[in-house]
């Protein structure tokens, strides 16, 4: 059997991801995490002196704290298997990526293990976030300087 024929058979036999179901689960879980985030930010607005604009920071920190507990007790992995992007895209997924790598590499010590492997998975998010922010801000600065747009 040649390679092409095999690839045809492989395409026929291998199960496709249930895209509709996966989307629904991602929508529900992602939506619920964001709604919980909304509740947390109201908590900070009502009980502390945060405003709608500044409540985002403590909200994110709180969600990552919850993600740490769920990751440590092995629950975030199960949530991830169920929800896919629904639990990966919220900032709790970023937290899970950092925290799971930290826990995993604890055996190599805090300096060589946790320290150097913490951003093994999440590092690319920071890289592309920072680099794209740099170029977007730079382009905007250039456009403002030549007078195309204003701040």
């Amino acid at each position: 059997m040649n390679e092409q024929r095999y690839q045809t058979i492989e395409q026929q036999i291998s199960p496709k991801p249930p895209i509709g179901m996966n989307m629904l689960k991602a929508f529900l879980v992602g939506g619920i995490i964001c709604a919980i985030g909304q509740a947390i930010s109201y908590f900070y607005i009502i009980f502390f002196d945060f405003t709608e604009q500044t409540a985002g920071n403590p909200t994110v920190a709180t969600i990552i704290f919850i993600a740490m507990l769920l990751t440590g007790f092995g629950l975030y992995r199960k949530l991830g298997q169920f929800a896919g992007a629904g639990s990966a895209v919220p900032v709790s997924g970023f937290g899970n990526a950092v925290i799971s790598a930290s826990i995993e590499h604890r055996t190599e010590g805090f300096v060589l293990g946790v320290g150097s492997s913490m951003f093994k998975l999440a590092g690319s998010v920071i890289l592309f976030g920072v680099v794209s922010a740099f170029f977007v801000a730079l382009i905007k600065l250039i456009l403002v300087t030549i007078g195309v747009v204003s701040w």
Binding site: C34, A35, G37, T59, V89, V125, F128
Partner: peptide
């Protein structure tokens, strides 16, 4: 609100 600040897009 949090629907936009919690997803990782808000990081960018």
């Amino acid at each position: 609100g949090a629907g936009a600040t919690v997803p990782i897009t808000s990081f960018g």
